[in-house]
Computed example of a mutant assay.
Amino acid sequence: MTTTTGLLVILGAAVGAPARYLTDRWLQSTHGTGFPWGTFTVNIVASFVLGVIIGSGAGGTVPPAVAVLVGTGFCGALSTWSTLGYETVRLAENRAWTQASLNVVASVLAGLGSAGLGFAVAGGAG
């Protein structure tokens, strides 16, 4: 990895990580439920953005620096699939079986769908 690449990842992550934290705190405070809406939302948004980057790159239109900055740095720091696992285990420990199951199934399906939609919107499917 070159110094420039590393700096682009750091710069993207410096925006993505606070965006994840602030989004999570805001959504959890507005919904007031046990379901982890913040984590769900940031993972779906990051999946969509990454789908757009990959779909755009399929046509050769995304410069590699943008893919590293936005795809690796921003999306990597915005999404938090490890927190999905932690929150699902926490829900299961609290015997919130329906919410735990819904968290996993909805997150995976919505994440894949969102990435596919981003890919298609960017013209990667054609």
Results as ranks from 00 to 15, higher is better:
residue 1 M to D: 14
residue 2 T to H: 09
residue 3 T to K: 01
residue 3 T to R: 11
residue 5 T to H: 10
residue 5 T to N: 12
residue 6 G to D: 08
residue 9 V to Q: 08
residue 12 G to Y: 00
residue 13 A to W: 02
residue 15 V to T: 12
residue 15 V to Y: 02
residue 15 V to A: 10
residue 16 G to H: 04
residue 19 A to M: 14
residue 19 A to C: 14
residue 19 A to T: 15
residue 22 L to N: 11
residue 22 L to Q: 12
residue 27 L to I: 02
residue 32 G to K: 11
residue 36 P to G: 06
residue 36 P to F: 01
residue 37 W to I: 00
residue 37 W to P: 03
residue 38 G to F: 00
residue 38 G to E: 02
residue 41 T to N: 10
residue 43 N to E: 05
residue 44 I to T: 14
residue 46 A to H: 05
residue 48 F to P: 03
residue 49 V to P: 03
residue 49 V to F: 04
residue 51 G to V: 08
residue 55 G to R: 03
residue 56 S to T: 13
residue 57 G to K: 00
residue 59 G to E: 11
residue 59 G to T: 13
residue 59 G to R: 05
residue 60 G to N: 10
residue 61 T to M: 09
residue 66 V to K: 05
residue 68 V to W: 00
residue 71 G to T: 08
residue 73 G to I: 07
residue 73 G to Y: 09
residue 76 G to W: 05
residue 76 G to M: 05
residue 76 G to I: 08
residue 78 L to H: 00
residue 79 S to I: 03
residue 80 T to H: 02
residue 81 W to P: 01
residue 82 S to L: 07
residue 82 S to Q: 03
residue 87 E to H: 09
residue 89 V to H: 07
residue 89 V to I: 15
residue 90 R to F: 09
residue 93 E to M: 09
residue 94 N to Y: 09
residue 94 N to F: 06
residue 95 R to Y: 09
residue 95 R to G: 07
residue 96 A to M: 11
residue 98 T to S: 12
residue 99 Q to P: 10
residue 99 Q to G: 13
residue 102 L to G: 13
residue 103 N to E: 10
residue 104 V to M: 04
residue 105 V to N: 04
residue 107 S to E: 01
residue 109 L to F: 13
residue 110 A to R: 03
residue 112 L to W: 12
residue 112 L to T: 09
residue 112 L to A: 13
residue 113 G to T: 08
residue 115 A to C: 12
residue 117 L to A: 14
residue 122 A to E: 08
residue 123 G to S: 10
residue 124 G to I: 07
residue 125 A to T: 12
residue 126 G to N: 14
